[in-house]
Simulated assay, not measured.
Amino acid sequence: MTSDGTWGALAGVRVLDLSQALSGPLCAQLLADHGADVIKVEPPSGDMGRQIGGHRDTDTEHAFGALFANCNRNKRSIVLDLKSDQGKATLLALADRADILIENFRAGVMDRLGLSYEVLSVRNPRLVYAAIRGFGDPRSGKSPYVDRPAFDLVAQAMGGIVSTTGAETPVPIGAPWGDSVPAIMTAYGIVLALLTARTTGKGQFVDVSMVDVIASLCHEQYQAYSIKNIVPTPQGSRNRHLVPFGIFKAADGWVAVCAPHRAQWTELCRVMQRSDLLDDVRFATDDARRANAVEIEAMIEAFTTLHTRKQLDNMIDGSFPFGPVFDAHDLMTDPHFAARDMRISIEQPGAEPVIVPGVPVKLSQTPGRVARRAPRLGEHTQAILAELRLDGK
């Protein structure tokens, strides 16, 4: 921490977060976790995300639910009605002093409010303006779907990733990848633009499509179709290219077993006490094991079902990639997450403290941290107006 109370790699960087729900707020939080001063600009009704995720039975305030707590920590909140002249004037004053602005409205909303990138960048040429939309912004290429709304599920579906998950019926990823990964990519783009702005004095427009980001992760689909004109289908919990490489049933849950190459396969055979398999021509090479996947996977599951996750972990002892399938209880109790500061207890207004994930990117010289809880609606309005000398005093 510096003498003025700032900390982290982004100390001194001011961010205006006009976004709601998950993708934009998470993007802004990633910057806040590393010291940026993130001002969350909310309408009088508040971010819709405040009510998502539920409340404790003992919560007397209902200031915000679990989702909001997880993606709005380290921020300050100001309430502005951007449909009013006063709200717009205050936003312009804030933007004049900001380094970054993040929004995830539908294309054209900020333009119609008179708060477009073009308007703001004339006033503040160094401003980095980031927009997260389902199908991107027409400034970078107008999608035929540009006017459609999108949630996480739509991004996963149209981005292609759902087509290869599940067993027979496509199944979305349980975690909200369609929101979360675009948030990470946008934070990455913002930092790139910020570095350029510090060198050239000029900001730029950062355009991220949720669907584009998910499509960019679908390497198998691109490769299979472009090379062999194959459309990959759902592959269940096993990998069609690497064997054995998948999720297997244990006596008390499920485990991940990854032993696709000779050295790893040898160790797995040792653990299963099946040295005879090493001399079997059907399993002698990576290609042979892939061709006989069904038989191999049946043998492995016959073995893993006889043992608990802990017993398997002890037997394998790091000799090849292996891990139990963790659930929420495991995330809260396993020593790895305590050792890595990935379980943070944080204040919850009107209720007992809640646990939120820690900061996953560890910097040795300028570490990020969870410094404060998510804000109440408009909690810092007067303080922020006073900083801008817009409080009438």
Rank of each mutant, 00 (worst) to 15 (best):
A224K: 08
A9Q: 10
E301W: 02
D17N: 15
M342P: 12
A293D: 09
N72W: 11
V359Q: 02
D152W: 07
R76V: 06
T164C: 03
G114H: 02
R50S: 07
G166P: 00
A284F: 00
A32E: 01
D37P: 11
R148D: 06
V281I: 09
Q311D: 05
V154R: 02
A187S: 10
P44F: 07
T200N: 04
V208A: 09
L388V: 01
R340T: 14
Q311W: 00
G35T: 01
V294T: 13
R133T: 13
D286L: 06
M315K: 02
L194Y: 11
H55K: 11
L82P: 00
H55T: 06
I346G: 08
H261I: 14
L113P: 04
H329A: 14
R290W: 00
A21R: 11
D276E: 15
V354I: 15
V354E: 02
P172A: 08
Q156R: 03
G203Q: 01
R289K: 02
V191A: 14
C218M: 13
A351S: 15
D252P: 06
E61F: 03
H241M: 11
C269R: 03
V370I: 15
G114F: 03
G12T: 02
V257G: 10
F64Q: 03
V119M: 14
R14M: 10
V181M: 14
K249R: 15
D152V: 10
Q365I: 09
I296K: 06
K310M: 14
T333E: 04
H261A: 12
I227C: 12
K202H: 11
A328R: 14
P149C: 06
Y225T: 12
R240Y: 08
V208N: 03
Q221A: 11
A63Q: 04
H55L: 13
H261R: 12
N70V: 12
R369M: 10
H329R: 14
K202T: 14
R76T: 02
A9Y: 10
W177A: 15
L18T: 08
N229E: 13
L306F: 00
T233E: 15
T186N: 13
E297L: 03
D47Q: 00
A93C: 07
A131C: 12
T165D: 12
L18N: 13
P125N: 03
G12M: 06
A21W: 11
T333I: 05
D280S: 01
